[in-house]
């Protein structure tokens, strides 16, 4: 059996110098930027919202709703789930189609007046082990409760991209090393895009507890305080 090593990550954010002041510019620039940039503003959004979830689950929706104050576009973009698209190119197409359709129903192009423009960015991820190792469901559950939010990001959202399929590192290990197919499937069904990384942690812990026959936990794990090593 292979042991599971929890890995966390840190990102260096690059400002691309591309800026949109209105929704048409947003679409025009989005059409041209790299897929890394699309990833940063959609999947990567969660790495920066590990504790406090943003009002909408991607940067485009949040900008439209909060900075442009166009709630309708914010809502329409906010419901887009990256899980529904097999590639970043398809995800980009969907976002562009929504913006185009929205603008097609308006006589003016909504723009920022009091808010900030949209700055396009991308990032470089550097990974490092947390020191946490699991060799059973019990130790996996203990590690899961302690790891940094960036490790949750790395093993779920980032993993799907790395593996090239809608699978998480957690599910792969649970299935292939522990033979827990049912739990692995349940882990893969948890939508990582439906809230903050802490909400994701809570959901995953609930699934582990159910499998272990433990009483279900409620609420968030301790957010801070004396640090315990991630080793299980």
């Amino acid at each position: 059996m292979t042991r599971f090593e929890f890995v966390a990550c840190s990102e260096l954010i690059q400002i691309l110098g591309l800026r949109a002041d209105d929704e048409r510019e947003l679409a025009e620039i989005l059409e041209k930027v790299s897929l890394d940039c699309v990833h940063y503003h959609t999947h990567g959004h969660f790495l920066r919202h590990g504790f406090v979830g943003a009002p909408y689950p991607n940067d485009f929706a949040t900008w439209a709703a909060i900075q442009v104050r166009d709630r309708v576009l914010g809502e329409r973009l906010g419901v887009v789930s990256p899980l529904d698209f097999s590639s970043l190119e398809e995800l980009r197409e969907e976002i562009l189609t929504i913006i185009d359709d929205h603008l097609g129903h308006l006589n003016i192009v909504p723009r920022v007046i009091f808010g900030d423009p949209f700055d396009f960015m991308q990032s470089r991820i550097v990974e490092a082990p947390t020191g946490g190792i699991a060799d059973s469901l019990e130790t996996f559950r203990a590690g899961l409760a302690r790891i940094q939010p960036s490790a949750l990001y790395f093993h779920t959202i980032e993993a799907s991209r790395r593996l090239g399929r809608p699978d998480t590192d957690f599910a792969v290990w649970l299935r292939e090393s522990l033979g827990l197919d049912r739990l692995a499937a349940a882990v893969n069904r948890v939508d990582p895009y439906a809230g903050s990384l802490e909400r994701l942690r809570t959901e995953l812990l609930r699934l582990c507890d159910a499998e272990l026959g433990l009483p279900l936990e409620t609420g968030l794990p301790p957010a801070a305080g004396p640090e315990s090593p991630g080793t299980a």
Binding site: A8, S10, G131, Q148, A224, G225
Partner: peptide, 10 residues
């Protein structure tokens, strides 16, 4: 004791 859990080790 003040940083988020796991930070120092990371």
């Amino acid at each position: 004791d003040v940083a988020p859990p796991g930070t120092v080790e990371f």
